[in-house]
Design a protein around this nucleic acid. Sequence first.
DNA 1: AAATTTAATGCAACTTTGTTGCAAATACAA
DNA 2: TTGTATTTGCAACAAAGTTGCATTAAATTT
Lengths: 126, 126
Amino acid sequence: MGVIRKTKAVSTVLSIFENKNEAKSVVSLIELVKGEMNKTTVYRILDRLEQDGIIHSFNGKDGLKWYAKCEGCSAHKHSDKHPHFQCTECDKVECLSLEVKIPALKNHKVDSTDILLMGQCETCCS
Amino acid sequence: MGVIRKTKAVSTVLSIFENKNEAKSVVSLIELVKGEMNKTTVYRILDRLEQDGIIHSFNGKDGLKWYAKCEGCSAHKHSDKHPHFQCTECDKVECLSLEVKIPALKNHKVDSTDILLMGQCETCCS
DNA sequence: AAATTTAATGCAACTTTGTTGCAAATACAA
DNA sequence: TTGTATTTGCAACAAAGTTGCATTAAATTT
């Protein structure tokens, strides 16, 4: 289906991702736009933006869903296979441009990989 | 805190992990022991077993929590850094003994990694 | 083998995340 | 500007997981 209409709500959500290269949890997004739109709307907009390859989703360390802007994705080819880093102190998530090599698996067909590194981010390290 | 008393409920949960080398989602565990014990008890036993290093947990592809038996873990040193594989068709999860090399990250202190490969398992491949 | 202590359990109520159906509102094309 | 299909809000729901508290049952002590 994807994004079809440029509504005010869609613009608001998009603008949150435009500026920074930082990932956002759905929970924090709902909080950010509280008063401006319904949480159901947030869920649905994120779905559509992901289907259009504008953002990508992944699971954070607590099993919560996070989203971030895709770099070079389209509706049909998602380049969202990069790893993510989540700080165990401040919970912030960053997209990493690392290339992680996964050894081949016998008798398995691997379609995608989720890699989450956890530890202390630059800010919380110092 | 950890496991202190060997109750019937603890034995039941342990026996589920003893036999097979297969991971179980909390949801499936609750279903398995339904009638025998309360879901709260399942959650609490899993917590204690994990703290004692007898099992380890990780997030499956849908953000659900899964558990599997540790191979060579203790309360203080968890060797649960191995990757997992989840089948996108039958949802089954396997622990992999692969060694995945993660390149060093500048200005970050990486303490642990979650790696989940997704695709078709041996059974669903053929 | 009782009595005592402390951990473990059951239960109900609750929180949080996420979903669904439907009516009303809005984008956009004709 | 009108018509139609998409988007939104709302309320109700569903599933995963948590909490408090009274009760039960291990393990220790006597």
